[in-house]
Amino acid sequence: MTGPPRLVDDPAFANTTLLVIDFEATTPAGHRPQPVEVAALGLRHVPGHGPQPTGFRSTSLIRPPDFAPVTSAMTRTTGIRPQDVADARTVDQVLAELDATVPAGPLLLVAQHAPVEASLLYDHRDHCPRLARTPLLDTRLLAKALHPLLPSFGLDALIAAFGLPRPADRHRAMADVDVTALLLRRLLTDAAAGTRYGTLADLLAVAGREARAARSEQQSLF
């Protein structure tokens, strides 16, 4: 008699690269958010050790358009100054390079409050088609599914709730990616300890977000 499915035995979970991604963006009045930084980190499940870095790690500052300058408020929050991005590449250039260099094979994006990342990727889908069509796993929703009694599910609240190290440069893209990766490992450990989430599909059912670009493509066929 076989027991319930285990997440660590799911081929889809074992063969998928989990790409943790984070943007820092400015939101000028009357316009959609404009990225000023993006970071990404690849993880793959290693039996007995959980998700481990694949070696793929990327971070880039982005020069926003003239109508979306880095404000003093953003500098206070992130430490990013206007002069830091003055000579940076545009978002389309940065995302095109990221799209071309992410690991081959099955891919799942991971983000804390994933609609933000999903919207930014969709806005620039012509330059990052693979990323824009890739579904996302939202650590906020996963935390809520696994620990529904927590009082809050923002990143700072989850860092505190699980005793994770709070980065000194919190609100920089790479720092937030690193701590989100730690959060993901904790949540996947909790998921694997139970019997409710035995496959990657189970996780996506409660914490997945469909890629808007993929949905638009499907709708265009009818």
Rank of each mutant, 00 (worst) to 15 (best):
G79K: 03
L184F: 11
E97A: 09
R57P: 04
L142H: 10
A193Y: 13
D99T: 14
V116M: 06
L204H: 09
A104S: 15
A86T: 07
I62R: 00
A88E: 11
S72V: 08
A68G: 04
H49L: 15
A168Y: 01
D9Y: 05
R89L: 03
L95K: 08
L150N: 07
D123I: 02
T195M: 09
H124Y: 12
T139A: 05
Q218P: 00
I80D: 04
H45W: 15
G42W: 13
P106D: 09
H171V: 00
P115L: 02
G208V: 06
D22T: 12
P11E: 04
R125Q: 10
Q219H: 11
E24H: 06
L188I: 12
A118L: 06
L121K: 05
V179N: 06
L221E: 15
H113N: 15
D138A: 01
I21N: 08
Q112T: 10
C128D: 00
A143I: 08
F23I: 07
L146G: 13
T26A: 03
R170Q: 03
P103K: 15
A12S: 14
F56K: 12
H124R: 15
I80L: 00
L187A: 04
A211I: 11
L204S: 01
H127C: 01
S72A: 08
A96H: 14
L204Y: 04
A205M: 05
L221Y: 10
P64W: 12
E24A: 04
L121I: 07
S60R: 15
R196F: 01
L137F: 09
L141A: 14
A100D: 15
F23Q: 04
L142N: 07
V20F: 06
H31N: 07
L150H: 11
V70Y: 03
V110F: 06
F222R: 15
E24F: 02
P103N: 14
R212N: 02
P167I: 07
L141H: 13
P33I: 01
V20L: 05
L158D: 03
L188P: 08
H49S: 14
D9I: 03
L187E: 03
T16C: 05
